[in-house]
Each structure stands twice: as C-alpha cells, then as structure tokens.
Design a binder for these strands. Sequence first.
DNA 1: CCTAACACGC
DNA 2: GACGTACGTGTTAGGA
Length: 876
Amino acid sequence: MTKKLVLIDGNSIAYRAFFALPLLNNDKGIHTNAVYGFTMMLMRIVEEEKPSHLLVAFDAGKTTFRHETFKEYKGGRQKTPPELSEQFPFIRELLDAYNIKRYELANYEADDIIGTLSAQAEQEGLDVKVISGDKDLLQLVSDRVTVDITRKGITEVDSYTPAFIDEKYGITPEQIVDMKGLMGDSSDNIPGVPGVGEKTALKLLKEHHTVEQLLESIDQVSGKKLKEKLEEHKELAIMSKKLATIFREAPIEVKVEDVSYEGHDNEKLAALFKELGFNSLLDKLGYEAEEIHEEFEDMNYEIITSVREEMLTTHSALIVELFDENYHHADIIGFGIANETGNYFIPADTALESEVFLSWISDEQMKKVVFNAKKSAVSLKWKGINLKGVYHDVMIASYIINPSDSNDDLATIAKQKGYSQVQSDEAVYGKGAKRKVPEQDILAEHVVRKALAAYHLENQLTDELKANEQYKLFEDLEMPLSLVLGDMEHQGVKIDMNRLNTMGTEIGERLDEIEKNIYRLAGESFNINSPKQLGVVLFETLNLPVIKKTKTGYSTSADVLEQLADKHEIISEILHYRQLGKLQSTYIEGLKKVVYEETNKVHTRFTQTLTQTGRLSSTDPNLQNIPIRLEEGKKIRQAFVPSQQDWVIFAADYSQIELRVLAHIANDEKLIEAFQNDLDIHTKTAMDVFHVEQDEVTSNMRRQAKAVNFGIVYGISDYGLSQSLGITRKEAGKFIERYLESFPGVKEYMDDIIRDAKEKGYVTTLLQRRRYLPEITSRNFNLRSFAERTAMNTPIQGTAADIIKKAMIHMAERLKEEGLQSKLLLQVHDELIFEAPKEEIETLKKLVPEVMEQALELKVPLKVDYSYGDTWFDAK
DNA sequence: CCTAACACGC
DNA sequence: GACGTACGTGTTAGGA
C-alpha cells in the first residue's frame, strides 16, 4: 500500500476550531474549544486517512521572509484572542500525546513547511494530504497531493484534487498563485490588482494562463478600464503573486522519514482529556476515566483485630470515620490506614483500646495524610485523644486548588483525579431516614478505599499546589488554621440559659399580642408566617397595591412592606412580628436546640473549605450571624457569656479592612493617604465624590458614600446600589462612575483585574488564593457582568480573609507562648471574639491589636478596635 | 423530602 | 438596552 503523509496547518486549524465552536471551558475555567476542535479533527484524520506519516506545522513568529518583500504582509490582522492563545500549550500537549511531530521554522510560515515537505514526499512516491482552512494551500494540489479545506465546523472539509479545482475554478493548481496575484487576498493583506476580483481573475487566466503572460499581452485584454488598471498595477500583480507563492525549498531540518506516525499514547492522551474535561472523547478512546488508576480495583486490605506496631508507619494516610454529620461528640466507627506496608481497617473499639495505636496517633513525628483534619482532630479530642502529626489534609488541598469544586466528599475529589473506586459517603450510608451504618465488610472497604485514595492523592495535590504557587498558603496558613479552628470549636461558647429562657418568654408574649392585633386589623385569622396567606390578606382582602411579585405569587419581603407602611396600620405590625419571630425561632429556640446540656455550651463548626472567597462559614449554630443591628436583636448577645467566673468576653475587630486592602491592592494614592491619616473613610469618600469640604458633608451624603463603599467591597452592581439607596439604577451608576473618577487608582485596578481575569481565567488574593471565573468570557451579559464584579471583589474580600486567618494563627501562638489562659472563641469575618480572665484584660488590650494589625504588612496601616464586658452584648 | 421565601450577619 | 444582580445559614410553609 502506498504510504500516506498528512500535513496539518496548525495555526489555521486552531483558529478555525476556535471560531467554529462555542467558547467551552473546563472545570478550572480554562478555555478548551480550540483544543477540542483540534482533537476532533485529528481523530477524523487518523480514522479516515490512516496516515503512515503525520506532521503539524506552525507559524513561527510575526515576521517572515515575505515581510522583506512587502512589510504590510498580513497587516491589519486582529491580535490573537487571549482565549485562543492560552490553548496553544494544550494543543502542543495533545500532539505530544498523539506522538505527532510538530514543527515550526523562524522566518517561514506553516505553508512553506508544508509545501517543502509535500514536494519531498511526492518525489519519494508518497500520497500527500494537506489539511488547512486556508485556500492558499490549493497551489500544492497535484496528482499525488490532495488539499482538504475546512468547510463548516471543523470536521467537514472540501477535498481539492486537480479535477475539483478545474471544476470549481476552471484552472490548474499551478494557476492558484496567479489568481491570488490578480485578485489579492484580504486576509493576508495581499493587494492584488485593484478592481480585479475572482471572476475577472479567472477569466483573464483562462486566456493568458499566468500573470507574466498576461502582463506581456495587456493590449489583447478587452475593456479599457481593466487594461488601464493592469498596466498601472503591473508591479503589484507580480509582487502579489510572489507573496502568495508557497516556498517549496525551505531550509527545514525534518525529512519525511522523520515524521512517521505510529499511533497515540493512550495513557498520555487519556490523562490530557481528563485534565481538559473531554469526557465524551475518553469514551471514544475506548477509555474510561476510571481506568486511569486501575491498580486500585483489586485492593487488598486487612481488618485488624489486634493492632501491630509495624503497620503504623511515619507516612500514612489516616481516615477517622464518623457516622454523625456533626463531629462534636460523634461516635467514631472505625479507622482506615493506608501506607507502604498495606491497607487496614481498624474497628473503633480495637483502635481506641490499643496502646500502640493511641501512641501512634498522638505522635507528632508520625506524619499523617488525612481527609478533613479538623473533623478528625475534634472528634478525637472529645475522647481525650490528641491527633498529632497531620501535615496534609486532602480536603483543604483540594479547596485551595479550586474552591468551586465540592470538596466535602473525598469520593468527588478522588474521582476528579482519576480514582473512581471510592464511593461517596452517601452511597454507603444512605441518606435521610434511611441512613445507617452498613455491614462491617462494606464499611471496612469503604473506609480503606478512602485512606488509599488520600494516600495516593497527596503527591498529586502537592504538585498542583506547588505549580500554582499555593503551597505556602496551604502549609503555612490553612493547615495550621484548621488546628486553631478545631480548638475554638472544641472550646465552645457558654450560654446563659436563664437569660435565653427569660427572653424567650418575653418575646413569646409580645408575639401573641402582635398576632392578635394583626388578626384584628386583617379581620381574620391566618398564618402570618406564610407569605402565601399573608399575600392574600394584604393584596386581596385589604386591597393594598401590589409592588412586586415573586414567581409563586405576591412578594411580601421587608422592602415591599416598608413601601406600604403608610397605607395601612397592619404593615408595621407585620414587620415587627417578623422581626420578633425571627429572634424567637432562630436565635432563641434555634440556639437552645444546639446547647449541650452538661456544659451549657454551643459548639459551632466552622467550614473552612466552602466559600469562594476564602471566608469561613459557621453552622450548628451559625455564630456569624447573631443579631447586632437592631437593639432588640442585639440583646441575644447577653446570653453569650464567659465559661468561667470573673472572666469577660473580649472582642476585637478590624476597622474597614476591605477598603484598606483595596487601597493597598489598587495602590490608589488618595485612598492610601486617607487611611494613613486615619480619616473617616465614608466622609472622605463623600468629600471626593460630591466635591465638597469636610464641613459640607451632610449625613445624607455620608450615608450614600457609605453605600457606595459597601458596594465596592461586596461587588454589587448599579442595580444593587440603587436598591440599597432607593434611587434609580441610572443614578446609582452615576455614583459609581463618580467614585471611580475620584479614585483613579481604584478605577485602574478594576480595569486591570478584569483584563487579567479574562486572560488567566482566575483571580488571586495577596496570599495566592484563587478563584476561577470561567464565565468572564461569556457572551451572556449577566453571567459576564457577574464574573466581572466577582473579579473585582474577590481579591479584596479574599485578602481580608487571608489577613484575619493569619492573625488567628499568630494569636493562638502568642496566647500559648505567653502562657495566657484567654481563649479564642469565634471569628466573624473581620472580628475575633475571646474569653479572658479579668487579670489578662490589660495584656489583651495590647496583644490582640498588635497581633491583628501586624498580621500582614500593607501600604496602609491596619486598625483594630476592641472592647470587653461581662457578656458578648457588653463587649461593644 | 425538596424548594421557595424570608431574614440575620459581614 | 435587555438580562437579574455580594456570600453565607437557618427557619417556616407547602406541595411532591
């Protein structure tokens, strides 16, 4: 069989694929459409053409020898979109995985490489197929050379043979350059003869065959105008033909025999497809994601009845398996261990009675990889066991690499990295009412598989962290933070139950009263807590004007009710009822439900791996949203008390941390100066935005400036600002515009960060926390706008989160170093809450602000305010 | 058992 | 100019 050489015009195909396909991205926000299209094309070629030899040629750089002839060659071209540029490294990886040679040569275009190699191949008797999106290549067509030009999409092509060219244009392949010489080529900025298009060029060539012959016999051309043009632009025609002519003797170092194609590397290709998220192509490969790490399938493990010293090594993966979702006081049901000696399941009783195991688990020198270090440590701490030596938490690593992945289930992370043998906890235990511990062998296998996955994932995740320059963030910030958080959760916060009960009774009575009043005003009884029923009463029975609708009916939200306040007496009653009802159900009853009876404490759980910005969240109970704004709600804080007699609650909060971070990141002169002089930032903003002196700033101006600052910090839109200020969207837009004019450094930052995010697909904080924003290149205005605001906001909020996390670690260290009894209890985004013996108050007054303010050095000082008192309420 | 609507904090 | 608009957690109602 005749050998076949396939030559691919790499740049051309990449461009075609990019523009033919929607802008796909993978889970990390990297665009993949061009790579995908390229892959489809390669698959088709390999399948249909069965090439014995294969090469992809690329353009080398901006200038080629053609620029010496005509410096405007390819002038006026649009810059390659960054969304495409970022894909070229993957295309190269793709070709390497396919074991396909790629080649580029300085000063020459891909066309010349293809032309030269096809000439060689023809001589050696090979069949040649050229693949491109560029019809220039048609000049290479011969009896042995076919050129495929992409038609629509990427896999549909027209195959040009000499016969097809004759049929389509009525000329020979050699005459293609003459055609280009006459008609030019706008995409390459080849001029051609003005006034001559395809039709005229073809007509002239049928008669005169070549540009040269034509120019020698211009007098025979019919048409006066045309004659003149040809005469006038002789030089241009000659030059254009030269530009369009592919150079078939380029000094390339590759020979046909160097580019033989032996087939692709299955493993490499599968790994790349996995990385890019080409799951459908994985199937096509005859590969499944699961098979990447198939050594996993026949895992051996042992259920331990008596712990042996030699199975507990200094580098082990450890799974502490709990049944309860809440790990405080949860039952440990077993331990999974994987290391170089084997895989083991140790039932809880066996482990907890084993001296060998207990000393290993508390040995700092025995290094452990875990999944969810805090959960493991806290659950053991409740049993009086100190988990030590944890140096890698797979959950945290995965969160750092990409916070948008669901990191709370090891199975998900494992699967994403190619280990599909791990089952999700939900699949093993069931959910809801059906949740139960399975048979021991099923449990054991599940736990051991998790351990084994963690054992294998460590290296992979570490590599990724290092590649992203996030290892420091992982090792020095989040890992130590998990220990600090675990201690805080375990310590808990004491609740004054009497206070809570008294408040509950009082609020209950007031609710009864308001309820009666509402029924009287409505003229009927109904469930005030039901928005549906309330809507009927307000908008049908009482006929109040409908301001807003939700998708299920009338909106009865607070902002709607406020607008109806002067229309009917019932409105203010309902608002008050809602306010008290919220206090009662969430903060009195809700809190009481989670107080531990023996100690009267609440033990929240901080989720360290959830938010997209790097903030923490808090659950069961959520202690980050205890009321403070309204006086009635704030009183709830009277129930949060120190755990010991003669202790106090000590609270310290950062003043304007986000805006200070903004001043630093944006490097805005005016903002930096304002903070260096410790000005009231909202007043200062009002002065700049409204162009007034300090004593001319009215309280209304300050309020509006404050809302704008709020908007900057939280990344709200003009619509959001208009809502919070009760003004039109247009006016809100003006405010934002004026703000940005007033702070040009901020404006520049906003523009830069969006550009940066579009280019890289993610934004980072000062400490290298990442957030991927795949939608920033979306054609959907909403999605794109949202991503843009996120790009502006995340570095600000995320850096603030970085700072307080660092402060927490330092704080814990200092308290220990100084031998203080004071305990860190809570973190509420920009504040830290402690409990402290009275004797230590004076020490804390100095120590806490010092540590917090020095957590990270910025171009502006960080400022911390503090207060203390007998309850959280009094620490104001 | 899930979703929608609402409200609390930063 | 439309589009539907910070992130979390928890409660209640109401329909599958």
